[in-house]
Design a protein around this nucleic acid. Structure first.
Lengths: 303, 303
DNA sequence: CTTTATTGTTCTAAATATAGAACGGTAATG
DNA sequence: CATTACCGTTCTATATTTAGAACAATAAAG
């Protein structure tokens, strides 16, 4: 079977006029080069390099093959360079908006990766839980979480990923107060609640069979900040409903446990909003693409 | 590390619009394609194909990379086609001349391989032990064995390989008559001799230290045909001096043994003669090249 | 002529890639 | 809504490839 790497090895052996110099130029054992070139000759059923321990001569056929193989490698170098330049050439400023929760839990590492990949890009991030007007604020793209379909507008919306909300509590809390077995075990429990309007709360639970149950609970702490609620839960203050991805780390290191794993406490959608597809700068496009390509693996339900 | 095969796999996945169709087109498990494309993306540190179990989307970067990768594959196909066409396109007649011994023992398999590689080539082989005039006989190339340097002429000469002559005899003969320990043990032995002029013979032996000894022997059979002499020796008729390569098979299967392995009974040179380098047809060039590239591995002392 | 240095090839334990099946996730179908 | 069919990924025993040393061959140096 054809092996394109043979081309690579062959070209270097020809250009360095020998196996040993090629091997040290490529920093690999010469035995490998030897076997690859032999394999190539065997496959093509033609001698490309005439060699003894002291002579090195590229045959006529070998010279012709070298021309093609060199062109192939040039094409490879062009491809690699194009990728690199696409990463390096991207520059300029991009402004984005997102909620506090998304900023803290969903895209933190992603933005760092993006900026490392495109070192000339400047990113301005406006973190707010209010919905603001993208166009008048000069924002290139925004991430919004929502439960229902967003209203039509001139804004371009693209679906990023689905996000389930789960119930969480600390292992200590659960062993102290008992692990709930059904939604009814949650009735009027002490809890933590996102947002402060209203100050009393109820969870709408849904299982895989599609059954829905609404359970009232008693929030001891209401906050806009998911991180505050999460750490309150870790400290054993009660049960909290949060997007699944916000607690993935706490679940894996055991500081939180999922309550009623068969039930979800909400289903939201993350969408990417951009003012208008035409006017987008290359940086904004790249960031949008990057988020579309990668966010779901960091945040999506299936991740 | 860079792996050019990744380009190959990537191009096919893009062109077939999926891993499964590409896999069956290439007749390989899709798991391999999956890992290769993943590896490529990881190395380039960029997503090329956005894929879930039901969606397949080549990213902008992926499309650009595809253009280059496709060009690379085109170059590969050109290279492979050039090799094939070089093999197939070669046609026409080539006439060569050589001695009976060379024809029987040195180039028999080589010529078959050559003709299999270039199916449209016709080969005319004139086998004779006489030196004939290449130009007037319309011979494209000749192989000549000789001990001394050939006289200068308009003929192009290229060295093919050095050929040592050794002494051989059958194991039976040696056990019957005693295995010689030194050249003197050969004195006036019954023997087999190449050529018939003169009908009495003497061997000129030389060892690695450069010592030379001339020993007279008594030929019971003189013949121009090495094969006749070889089989006479196998049948136990006596000791024979022949080019080493003619008896390589008999040595390895045990029907002959080398006599006085420290001594050679002559040193010859095989040369390739061509009328004039300009006037050569492509076929003649190819055959000359083929013999230059391969003969020494079949015949040369080091083979 | 012997020694030395350097070449390409061969050998073998260890690392890597592969084939094929099993898997988990998703869209279309009844 | 449950079923079916299909897609890409993951898993794992098997097969291939590799690195590094040993090797054989050859030309240059002493």
């Amino acid at each position: 079977m054809i092996d394109l790497n043979d081309y690579y090895y062959f070209v270097h052996v020809v250009e360095k006029q020998g196996f040993t110099p090629a091997a040290q130029a490529l920093n690999m054992p010469k035995s490998r080069l030897s076997r690859h070139v032999s394999k190539l000759e065997e496959r093509l059923d033609i001698k490309l390099i005439q060699r003894t321990s002291r002579q090195f001569h590229v045959t006529e056929t070998g010279k012709m093959f070298y021309q093609h193989a060199r062109a192939l490698l040039d094409e490879m170098e062009a491809a690699e360079a194009a990728i690199e330049s696409r990463k390096l050439s991207l520059n300029g400023r991009v402004t984005m908006s997102c909620s506090l929760g998304v900023a803290q839990f969903a895209i933190k590492e992603l933005l760092v990766n993006f900026l490392q990949k495109y070192p000339k890009v400047e990113l301005v991030q406006q973190v707010t839980n209010q919905n603001i007007d993208l166009v008048s604020s000069g924002i290139d793209l925004a991430i919004r979480g929502h439960t229902d379909t967003l209203p039509d507008s001139s804004i371009i919306q693209r679906n990023l990923c689905a996000v389930s909300w789960h119930l969480f509590a600390s292992p200590g809390y659960l062993s102290d107060t008992g692990t709930p077995r059904s939604p009814y075990d949650l009735f009027k429990r002490k809890s933590l609640k996102i947002g402060w309007q209203p100050t009393n709360g109820h969870w709408t639970l849904e299982n895989k069979q599609g059954l829905k149950t609404t359970v009232p609970h008693h929030p001891q702490l209401c906050s806009d900040d998911m991180n505050t609620l999460k750490h309150a839960a870790i400290d054993g203050l009660g049960i909290v409903s949060l997007p699944a991805y916000t607690c993935r780390d706490a679940i894996s290191n055991g500081t939180l446990q999922r309550v009623l794993p068969e039930w979800t406490s909400g289903k939201a959608q993350l969408s990417l909003l951009t003012p208008s597809r035409r006017a987008q700068s290359p940086v904004a496009k790249a960031l949008a693409l990057y988020l579309l390509d990668n966010l779901h693996t960091h945040v999506g339900d299936s991740a």
